Computed example of a mutant assay.
Amino acid sequence: MLTDYQKKSRERMVHEQLMRNGIRNRAILHAMQKVPRHFFVQEALTSQAYEDLTLPIGSGQTISRPIVVAWMTEILQPQKGLKILEIGTGCGYQTAVLAELGLNVFSIERIPELHQSAKQRLAKLGYTSNTLLKLSDGTLGWKEAAPFDRIMITAGGPVVPPPLLEQLADQGLLLMPIGNDRQKQNFILLHKNNGEITKETFGEVSFVELIGNHGW
């Protein structure tokens, strides 16, 4: 049951953090207004769930600030019905936002505890018809489900894992925090067009490390 405090906090998050910082996509604003972020954080931190904060979710991982979730989602130009591969399910919050937008989400997590808890949360919220989760090395991608219209990597690494580029559909977009510094990266957006890759660079961010066969 959503309390008045949580409802007001979520509305404030959308208006003061997202809209004030340039998020204009109405579908994204609506999705983040609807998805209960407090359901995805540790119980002791629920009072901070709608603040402009990165919060720990266990196993050395974090849930990104709301503005970063919105920003990543907007950069990828989501459209209902597209197939998206998410690397790093974490607590499942970003997965839920993508599902709420009507994308078909394939999400990979390498940590068993996070994979299982995210699966339970998403099921309780009813995001089962358009989400599929897998416990695996995300840097290898999900070959049997490829190609993907969009790929979102929610951990930072030095390079884009080659299997993920191979699994990106033509006309597809791939977003990843990239940098040789394990603490700081830049968002890199790759466009695939007739086999050719072009790149856009966005602002500086700080994500957890991408661990795996093609990561750190």
Rank of each mutant, 00 (worst) to 15 (best):
Q79G: 06
G81W: 00
G81I: 02
G81R: 07
I87S: 10
I87V: 15
G88K: 12
G88I: 07
T89R: 11
C91L: 05
G92K: 08
T95C: 12
V97I: 14
V97A: 04
L98G: 09
A99Q: 04
E100M: 04
L103R: 12
N104E: 10
F106Q: 13
F106N: 14
I108T: 11
I108F: 02
E109N: 14
R110L: 05
P112I: 03
E113C: 06
E113D: 14
H115P: 02
Q116V: 05
G126K: 07
G126F: 00
T128M: 04
L132Y: 03
L133P: 01
S136E: 06
S136N: 13
G138Q: 05
T139Q: 06
G141H: 03
K143V: 06
E144R: 15
A146N: 08
F148E: 10
F148A: 15
D149E: 12
R150T: 04
M152C: 13
A155I: 06
A155G: 12
A155V: 09
G156V: 05
P158V: 06
V160E: 01
P161Q: 14
P163K: 15
L168T: 12
A169L: 02
Q171D: 10
G172W: 00
G172E: 01
L174T: 11
M176E: 05
P177M: 02
P177W: 00
